[in-house]
């Protein structure tokens, strides 16, 4: 892999890797560290990566594993919940405030899901990956991808309906 190809790979995948990692670790600084680590590893082992069929899936898998490692580190055990709160959106008018609340609520519901469901939702509904690609990244069968997706979507919708019913 030449520097030019490497730079192109960074440009095209950094955002996807960042969002995926952020969905797992919940902190922007840690997600950025993961992205950096993934690309540094790619460069250091570029000879091994030459000829890899699906480089993107390989890098996504690396990002997933590094992110999960970060959530398991001892240091994180001491972090406060506030530090891992998902992205909050800004609002200026009343209508925007309502929309912001809705976005924040969906974000919090997503954060409350089991890790596998969260990752599958991220890869399908945000990154628009195929079931096959998700199965490869997650290292699970396609049928399990669909089951996790079904559970994630159904849970979020039901919770939103409940909140609306209670006027929240």
């Amino acid at each position: 892999m030449r520097m030019k190809d490497f730079a192109h790979t960074v440009d095209s995948l950094k955002d996807t890797l960042y969002r995926f990692s952020l969905r797992i670790v919940g902190r922007t600084d840690e997600a950025e560290d993961v992205v950096q680590e993934v690309f540094v590893k790619l460069w250091q082992k570029r000879k091994e990566f030459t000829g890899v069929k699906n480089l993107e899936a390989m890098l996504m898998k690396m990002a997933k594993n590094l992110s999960i490692d970060k959530t398991r580190s001892k240091h994180r055990g001491l972090m406060s919940i506030a530090e891992t709160t998902p992205t909050s959106y800004e609002a200026s008018s009343e209508g925007q405030l309502e929309a912001k609340d809705a976005l924040d609520r969906v974000g919090k519901l997503l954060e409350s899901l089991p890790l596998k469901q969260r990752m599958v939702f991220q890869l399908r509904d945000i990154e628009e990956k195929t079931y096959k690609e998700i199965a490869e990244i997650m290292e699970i069968p396609e049928a399990q991808v669909k089951v996790n997706l079904h559970r994630a979507r159904t849970f979020i919708r039901q919770e939103l309906l409940k909140a609306d019913a209670y006027g929240l």
């Binding site: 960074v10 955002d15 960042y18 969002r19 992205v35 992205t87 969906v106 997503l110 979507r153 919708r157």
Partner: peptide
Amino acid sequence: KKIFAFTAKEIQLTPRETIKADIKEGI
């Protein structure tokens, strides 16, 4: 509508501008 609005917003998230420089420094 809320779910799809959320996914449309999330796709716009990007890392810091300086991340490319950090990667370059890392290699």
